[in-house]
């Protein structure tokens, strides 16, 4: 999937200095002018990338829209770390996204791509086991995670309110790779805790496949909500066996209080809200993006998990 080559109009990447932003930029900047907004530095950014080191919520971030003819916005400026607190997550996820949506309308942006997550479908005894894009978003557990649901729903309703903007909401399954997120932090542990007597389905996708999925949605005409699942779901034990690491079975009644204490004190990067994925699993149906955009994952399960092997 090569992005379209129109020299004049640019792609704006919010949260460009994050892992996905940097990777996308390296794939895009030769073909299209790339503009980035991020408060964090982008150390060895390609020379032809225009950076705005500003807060996305500030008024100055709008300069990116004013000074460039933005055709596409890839919105990656999304915070998943619940330790930042509900208020920060709200302003980061909801207020910033509102600003981006607003600018998309005012500056005639043609396409908006938002990287949401399939975690929002939730994982509990009451949630569905087979999830297509129509499944309800039941993953909000507290105010912090509900900001992510709000962001997703804001973007899907934007899709209907403003049909002139081709809006794409991507919901990838658990992303694994060199990045720091809950599933990768978990798999990186030297000893893998597992809930005694539970073996839910797990589904992971390699970060490169997520980048490929974002690039696939750049195709003109692509719009709507897309699940991206990667290799098929397998029981957690099957996945963990591939890592060849010791597994510690913990009774589920003990696990949560222990884990949440360790998380709060910063000893452990695995948020307690993710424990539900060690207890209840689901399968994400991504047949839509495969059928409509020809997306195919490159990393099979063992390749996606190779990163976390004991002796890689």
């Amino acid at each position: 999937m090569s992005p379209r080559k129109r020299k004049q109009r640019s792609i704006l990447v919010t949260g460009i200095s994050g892992r996905f932003g940097r990777r996308l930029t390296r794939q895009l900047h030769r073909d299209v002018p790339v503009v980035g907004i991020d408060r964090r530095p982008f150390p060895d950014a390609p020379k032809d990338v225009t950076m705005y080191r500003v807060n996305l919520r500030s008024r100055r971030s709008e300069e990116a829209f004013r000074q460039h003819d933005i055709e596409t916005v890839i919105h990656l400026n999304i915070m998943h770390d619940q330790r930042q607190g509900a208020a920060t997550m709200h302003s980061f996820n909801v207020m910033a996204a509102r600003k981006v949506l607003d600018c998309c309308v005012r500056y005639g942006v043609q396409k908006l791509i938002v990287l949401s997550t399939a975690n929002l479908y939730g994982s509990s005894a009451r949630s569905q086991e087979y999830l297509n894009e129509e499944a309800p978003l039941m993953g909000a557990q507290d105010v912090a995670t509900s900001t992510l649901v709000e962001l997703d729903m804001m973007c899907t309703s934007f899709m209907w309110k403003h049909p002139e903007v081709e809006t794409v909401v991507l919901r990838p399954s658990h992303i694994v790779g060199k990045l720091r997120n809950a599933p990768s932090n978990y798999l990186r542990l030297p000893r893998l805790p597992k809930l005694m007597g539970f073996d839910p389905l797990m589904q992971v996708i390699h970060e490169d496949d997520v980048v490929a999925a974002i690039l696939a949605t750049l195709l003109p005409g692509a719009r709507g909500v897309f699940n991206v699942a990667g290799p098929p779901s397998v029981p957690l034990s099957t996945g963990l066996e591939l890592l060849e690491k010791p597994i510690v079975e913990v009774p589920h009644l003990l696990f949560e209080p222990l884990a949440s204490r360790m998380f709060k004190s910063g000893l452990w990067g695995f948020p307690p809200s993710e424990i539900r994925f060690l207890q209840y699993g689901s399968t994400i149906d991504d047949s839509r993006i495969r059928r409509e955009l020809g997306f195919q994952h490159k990393y099979a399960l063992d390749e996606a998990l190779r990163e976390f092997k004991r002796y890689p």
Binding site: E129, Y130, L201, P232, S233, V234, P235, T238, T283, L301
Partner: peptide, 10 residues
């Protein structure tokens, strides 16, 4: 069944 021998419900 997928290549690991499981269906979508495990």
């Amino acid at each position: 069944l997928n290549e690991h021998g499981y269906d979508a419900f495990g």
